[in-house]
Design a protein around this nucleic acid. Structure first.
Length: 888
RNA sequence: GGGCGGAUAGCUCAGUUGGGAGAGCAUCGGCCUUACAAGCCGAGGGUCACAGGUUCAAGCCCUGUUCCGCCUACCA
């Protein structure tokens, strides 16, 4: 078997795993801690250990991989730092579910044993997503893989916690937080997803104490009334200005609570009376603290009513709502019920309705941190791309609220704070303290809460590189070059990394943040398990190959627009991969054993043209990738490879390659072919790593991996020494003439196998010379048996005509021509020209245009007018001739 | 309530400083031309959401309207 004979179509499954193993074995993904090359670094957005690869990951990591592979080809020392996130709540839920299947709860198992079980679970399943990333071709430096619960990263977490605490940026306190009864933990504001809900607004009368009448308040959560400690009205509300009563009787509880005046109350809402429940509403909590109101917690952490709820104690909170309503109705205090749509918070992990709840939790004071993070973007130390996301970033950062970081779960970084059993004071320390730093007692009990998972991921860009140690890795790669992420975690993650990075490293964590879109289903709907519209990336990879899939993602990754994914699209790009494969296969048939020298002399027109185009495409792709315009880079390459290289170059040089034009031509075109294909493979490699690696090894004279090749540099352009203008103009002329002939062939229904005779008429000497020089090329491409170039003159009988670039193309169709059809064709063509011509003439008749438009534009329009008029005249002459002939 | 984005060919979408409306897929016609039928050659198809405005000139800039997404928010 000839070494260059390869399969007729590309079979991804035969090569992908092999090459991935090869890259790993050769350590081609490894970054050097330090070397003379410029450093380029990206930290991966760590996927949850519980996760499986979904479309979002696939897009996210494909884009990162494209950047990393591109920078490596450019000669950079690239670090793509991989790892996974311990995903506290999500992982705990998974393992708890597993326990539940065995009929156990985590409380029965106990904290230590439970955590062991989670680690064991991770051993077993935690690598799934890593292996899936490898299937995607991700070129991460796997030897450096990190996990947010690793000892090193945990050390970073403790240090950050302690320092922030000492700086007064972490505090503990009793506040209203979001509580999920299902996950049994507090959540940060961000972790609550709001959903419009059709509920009811209940109007309830609170009778004045000792007087007739009362104040009507409105609420969507009537069960919380049991915890009301006041009724508020606006100080300026005239309806309540002369109120004699200063208190009301809280129905069902028979508690006397004060009427207070607070400007928070919106006089236009309902009756202007507001019930105040400090323990179960954030606003009420604020009002409560302004007026020194007690907070009565009636809903417990387990979702059941507390003892404070009196007769309702022990009821589920939703059942209690019904019971309260019924009781109120019986007492005639339920004045009105009206439908009301409002946003209800749900837990982002389990979907359960979240309750605002009074609770002692730990918080980060974010304002001071946010200020610097805002400034960093404003001053351009970090660029957010596309730029409009920075507005969203500012909006959120400027209105940031303190971040609740404690979680009442077990899986995570346990908060390094100890309470003294003797004096009750806190000792916060990186290492387990021996004694209380306040009273010296030794009875210390560690805080049982763990930290929000996002607390540790906020440190990711530097904790993964060895911080708090001053490692060479940090020296070389911090700040990282770019962060590639979806906008859904802009606040969760990016904003917090900015705050922590600046605070602890004194420098921003990344130079660029590239925010990509979401992958949706083909109808534009968000993919979700419950909708059942998810497309599994692995299934797609199995069916079409990784490269097709990656190229699809890149081709659709236009900035600021979501990607609608369907298998059909991927199939289309598989055709492209196959096209590339076959173009290479064809090329290999015409290559020797070695890499040929770069050709400099004796280049044919197609040779000069393709090298010119190659240089242009090279520059375009580099510019597009430098600007994160992935879709443009992919589109440019697609267009070039298929429609310039395959459709025109390869077709044009077939006579040369087959030796029909002599040995010298054969060698020259072979050489150009080799160099062009070589560069195409390198340019495409970041997008489609597997097929390019495979073809690279078939390309004669290459060594090692294509990953070690060099991305063509503009200053070493293949087109050096070539008159670009001449090559492009001449080729454009050839293409136009060939296309004109083909169009006539198609429209006149002449079989492609029939060789044609054409005559080209032009009055332009130079054009005539170019046509004569490349006549054979035209003949080959248009399937002609005869081509003559002549000055304008008499037209032959029975010829179909077309005019391109001032050249009249006469296709002789003796005995074949259908005059009616030709008349129709010409009339249609002339009609089109007339339409265009009238537009142009209208412009030229406009005095304002002539006076105010730039000269260049006016000249351009004039030239167009002349060309169109000339073309029209030529076509019309022919039309009249045929019509006259037809009449005879 | 605030903010962001979208509306361009049958479908999915490009369109980078305002100057002759593009691609892929789909459709129609012709081809097994020795790399590829997962292919080749050709063709048809658009009031650039609507209404105004700026300009010699608007898919692009400005104003407003409609529809569709998304993010964010402490009106009970």
């Amino acid at each position: 078997m000839h070494p260059n004979s390869i399969e007729k179509s590309y079979e991804p499954r035969h090569v992908e795993q092999r090459w991935y193993a090869f890259w790993e074995n050769e350590k081609l993904f490894s970054a050097a801690e330090k070397n003379e090359r410029p450093g380029y670094s990206i930290v991966i957005p760590p996927p949850n250990v519980t996760g499986v690869l979904h479309m979002g990951h696939a897009l996210n990591n494909t884009l990162q991989d494209i950047l990393c592979r591109y920078r490596r080809l450019c000669g950079d020392n690239v670090l793509w730092m991989p790892g996974t996130d311990h995903a506290g709540i999500a992982t705990q839920n998974v393992v708890e579910k597993k326990l539940a299947a065995e009929g156990k709860t985590r409380h029965e198992v106990g904290r230590e044993a439970f955590i062991d079980a989670v680690w064991k679970w991770r051993e077993e399943y935690g690598n799934a997503i890593i292996n899936q990333l490898k299937r995607l071709g991700a070129s991460c430096d796997w030897d450096r893989e990190r996990f947010t619960m690793d000892e090193g990263l945990s050390r970073a977490v403790r240090k950050v916690f302690v320092e922030l605490y000492r700086q007064g940026l972490i505090y503990r306190g009793l506040y209203i937080i979001n509580w999920c009864h299902r996950c049994f933990t507090a959540l940060a504001d961000l972790e609550v997803e709001h959903e419009e809900h059709q509920g009811n607004l209940y109007h309830i009368r609170y009778p004045y104490s000792g007087k007739d009448g009362g104040i009507v308040v409105a609420t969507t959560r009537p069960e919380t009334m049991l915890g009301d400690t006041a009724v508020a009205v606006h100080p300026d509300d005239e309806r309540y200005a002369d109120l004699e009563a200063d208190s009301v009787v809280l129905p069902l509880m028979d508690r006397i609570i004060p009427i207070i005046r607070d400007p928070y109350v919106d006089t236009s809402f309902g009756t202007g009376g507001l019930k105040v429940t400090p323990a179960h509403d954030p606003n009420d909590f604020e009002i409560g603290s302004r007026h020194n109101l007690p907070a009565v917690k009636v809903i417990g952490d387990d979702g059941r009513m507390t003892e404070e709820a009196g007769p309702f104690a022990g009821m589920d909170r939703l059942a209690c709502r019904q019971a309260v309503l019924k009781a109120l109705e019986e007492q005639g205090l339920l004045v009105r019920v009206e439908p009301h749509s409002h946003a209800v918070g749900h837990c982002y992990r389990c979907g359960e309705v979240v309750e605002p709840n009074l609770s002692r939790q730990w918080f980060v004071r974010t304002k001071p941190l946010a200020e610097k993070a805002i400034a960093a973007v404003r001053e351009g130390e970090t660029r957010i791309i596309p730029e409009n996301w920075s507005k969203t970033y500012y909006d959120w950062m400027e209105n940031i609220r303190d971040w609740c970081i404690s979680r009442q779960i077990w899986w995570g970084h346990q908060i390094p704070a100890w309470t003294c059993q003797a004096c009750g004071e806190l000792t916060v320390s990186e290492e387990t303290p021996q004694r209380c730093e306040h009273c010296g007692a030794q009875e210390l009990v560690q805080e049982t809460d763990v930290l929000d998972t996002w607390f540790s991921s906020a440190l990711w860009p530097f904790s993964t590189m060895g911080w708090p140690d001053r490692t060479p890795l940090l020296q070389t790669f911090y700040p990282t070059s770019c962060l590639v992420t979806g906008f859904d975690i802009l606040f969760f993650w990016v904003a917090r990394m900015m705050m922590m990075g600046i605070h602890f490293m004194g420098e921003v964590p990344f130079r660029d943040v590239y925010v990509h879109a979401l992958v949706r289903d083909e109808d534009g709907k968000k993919m979700s398990k419950s909708t059942g519209n998810v497309i599994d990336p692995l299934t797609v990879i199995e069916a079409y190959g990784t490269d097709s899939f990656r190229f699809t993602l890149a081709a659709f990754a236009a900035q600021g627009r979501d990607i609608k994914m369907s298998e059909k699209r991927v199939e289309g790009y598989r055709h492209f991969i196959n096209k590339l494969w076959n173009a290479a296969r064809f090329s290999f048939m015409h290559m020797g054993e070695d890499a040929p020298e770069a050709p400099r002399q004796g280049l044919s027109l197609p040779d000069r043209w393709i090298l010119t185009r190659l240089s242009a495409i090279n520059a375009e792709v580099a510019a597009a990738l430098d600007d994160y315009r992935f879709n443009e880079a992919a589109g440019t390459l697609y267009q070039f490879v298929w429609h310039e290289f395959c459709d025109w170059y390869l077709e044009a040089v077939k006579p040369d390659l087959y030796g029909k034009l002599g040995e010298e031509r054969k060698q020259t075109s072979r050489s150009v072919l080799w160099h062009t294909l070589h560069d195409i493979l390198v340019l495409l490699h970041p997008f489609v790593p597997f097929v390019t690696e495979e073809l690279w090894h078939h390309l004669p004279g290459t060594q090692g991996s294509i990953m070690q090749a060099a991305f063509p540099k503009p200053e070493q352009a293949r087109s050096a020494g070539i008159n670009r203008r001449e090559a492009e103009d001449a080729m454009a002329l050839v293409v136009s003439v060939v296309t004109a002939v083909r169009t006539i062939r198609g429209e006149m229904n002449v079989n492609p196998s029939v060789a044609l005779t054409i005559r080209l008429q032009t009055s332009d000497e130079e054009t005539g010379a170019v046509l004569r020089r490349h006549g054979d090329r035209i003949s080959h491409l248009a399937r002609l048996d005869s081509l003559t170039v002549e000055p304008p003159g008499p037209r032959p009988r029975s010829a179909a005509v077309s005019v391109v670039e001032g050249v009249t193309v006469l296709v002789l169709l003796e005995g074949v021509i259908d005059f009616d059809r030709e008349i129709q064709r010409l009339q249609k063509e002339i009609g089109k020209i007339d339409q265009e011509l009238s537009g142009v003439q209208r412009k030229l008749a406009n005095e304002g245009f002539l006076r105010k438009a730039p000269e260049k534009v006016v000249d351009g329009v004039r030239l167009r007018q002349e060309n169109l008029a000339e073309k029209r005249e030529k076509l019309n002459a022919n039309l009249e001739r045929i019509q006259a002939m037809d009449a005879v």
